[in-house]
Design a protein around this nucleic acid. Structure first.
Length: 432
RNA sequence: GGAGGAGUGGCCGAGUUGGUUGAAGGCGCACGACUCGAAAUCGUGUAUGCGAGGCAACUCGUAUCAAGGGUUCGAAUCCCUUCUCCUCCGCCA
């Protein structure tokens, strides 16, 4: 949720920037609710003051009939005003929640994902002296993939992964966990990119895969609900990303300044209904209802929020470089970054089977937009309380990461060469 | 799932025959004194949201004792619902 003060100070700018993200916000109406709310608050407070004064004068002795009558009168008036205040506050908050986070000034303005800007291309599309196959063809031939039985058990967009593909997945998990907890790796990324961020390594976390409605909503990731799985008879939803459970785990907490940043590397399965994508990306395991993902989450101070964002992107890139997968970095435009985002960057890996760059990573910087409703704050050494800033970014997705490896490392024989960086985690094997 | 107990400030912990309790005490933290410096000791201070006023330090009002609702002139204290934690029983990876 955005700070109402920003809207009071810059109503036109907020309307304009919201529009750039595709949200039509009636700022005048919102400010009207705000004003009404504040004046009612004043009236309610004044009445409560009267009530409290009467009650305080009662101490020890018994109240007179006159006092009780006066108290009852105030009580009735108060009930009426409090009711009014309650409904106006509800309208106010409902509308305020609809206001998206303001995009940072360097975010390209665009009306759809077509206007995302390619910021950087690293490596070149892999060349083959044979016709490269899709990951699905390779995986089926190797016996790594069974979607038919998954269709029987759970329906489309689910899969059983088997054999060396499973071992590859666990190798990737170990590799990424090792890197993100390694001090020298963190130091290297920071110095190579000239960043002024903490050099604290990441803490590995295996989170729960579900969360309550209230926290999901506070993260502002619950909508559109059509894309989420609800647990029947429980106030719980399956997460769409580890971000949702990692970001919300410190709700209602106050950090000491020295404790920040908090950096987590989480491993979790993510669940998406993929509403509205019927028939899209049906081959292989590119777009699944359930996929595992290594996700970075960072909670920190506002003044280093943008640098932290760049830091997470630098890690994403470094890992791709160590795996030697060609990729491009996309600066997402205003329409394509999420509602709570101030900035958003995607990494797209080269997928020889599709002859295209396809999205593998996202990095999101939310400023204090998410943490405001989560009530995650920091007590500065000066004693001031501030809302923290949140960043999240994919470390590596375990559906599309392996796809990129399989397709870029395939051989004419239909084998897959194991990236050198992963061999120590694959028993030294060079091919699978 | 059944029976019982409990949720108070950054943390621990008083306070439940309703009435100066935002809340004793301790820890922690901040500042100061002492010290070459530190520890120990002593002193002072130390919750947050909302509203109003002020450039500001801050002041005033109001709310908050798990959350929501109720009873009452008045609720941390009484009632209801929900959530969470603990103990025992049952079930179970």
């Amino acid at each position: 949720m955005i700070d109402i003060q920003i809207i009071r100070d810059n109503p036109e700018l907020v309307a304009e920037k919201s529009k750039q993200k595709g949200y039509d916000i009636d700022v005048t109406q919102l400010l009207g609710f705000d004003e009404k709310r504040r004046s009612l608050q004043g009236e309610v407070d004044a009445l409560r003051q009267q009530r409290n004064e009467i009650a305080a004068s009662m101490k020890g002795g018994k109240p007179s009939d006159e006092m009780i009558a006066k108290g009852k009168e105030i009580k009735d008036q108060l009930a009426d005003l409090e009711h009014q205040l309650g409904s106006i506050e509800q309208e106010f908050i409902d509308l305020l929640k609809k206001v998206p986070n303001m995009p940072a000034d360097d975010v390209p303005v665009g009306a759809s994902e077509d206007e995302n800007v390619v910021a950087k291309i690293v490596g070149e599309p892999t060349k083959f002296d044979f016709e490269p196959k899709s990951h699905a063809d390779i995986a089926y031939a190797k016996g790594w993939l069974d979607k038919e039985r998954a269709a029987k058990v759970t329906g489309p967009r689910f899969a059983y992964l088997k054999g060396d593909l499973v071992k590859l997945q666990f190798a990737i998990i170990q590799f990424v966990m090792d890197k993100l907890t390694d001090q020298s790796f963190i130091d290297e990324v920071i110095s190579e990119n000239n960043l002024s961020v903490s050099n604290k390594p990441f803490l590995p976390v295996l989170p729960p895969f579900m969360l309550r409605t209230e926290l999901y909503d506070a993260m502002d990731r619950l909508e559109p609900r059509d894309d989420r799985y609800k647990i029947e008879d429980e106030d719980l939803w399956l997460q769409g990303s580890a971000e949702h459970v990692l970001g919300s785990m410190h709700a209602d907490e106050v950090f000491q300044e020295a404790e920040l940043p908090i950096r987590y590397i989480g491993y979790a399965s993510s669940f998406r209904r993929e509403a509205g994508t019927y028939g899209k990306d049906m081959e292989g395991i590119f777009r699944m209802h359930q996929f595992d993902k290594l996700e970075m989450e960072s909670l920190g101070l506002g003044e280093v929020g943008t640098d932290e964002h760049l830091f997470l992107i630098a890690i994403q890139e470094k890992i791709m470089q160590l795996l030697e997968i060609p990729y491009q970095v996309l600066s997402k435009c205003t329409a394509d970054i999420g509602k709570p985002n101030a900035r958003g960057v995607d990494i797209e890996a080269w997928m020889p089977g599709q002859q295209k760059y396809r999205e593998t990573h996202t990095a999101d910087y939310m400023t204090n937009y998410q943490a405001r409703r989560l009530k995650t704050r920091v007590k500065r050494t000066s004693g001031e309380l501030e809302i923290i800033h949140t960043n999240d970014a994919t470390a590596l997705p375990l559906s599309r990461g392996p796809i990129a490896i399989i397709e870029n490392y395939q051989t004419a024989e239909g084998d897959v060469v194991v990236p050198e960086a992963l061999r120590p985690y694959m028993g030294g094997r060079e091919r699978i």
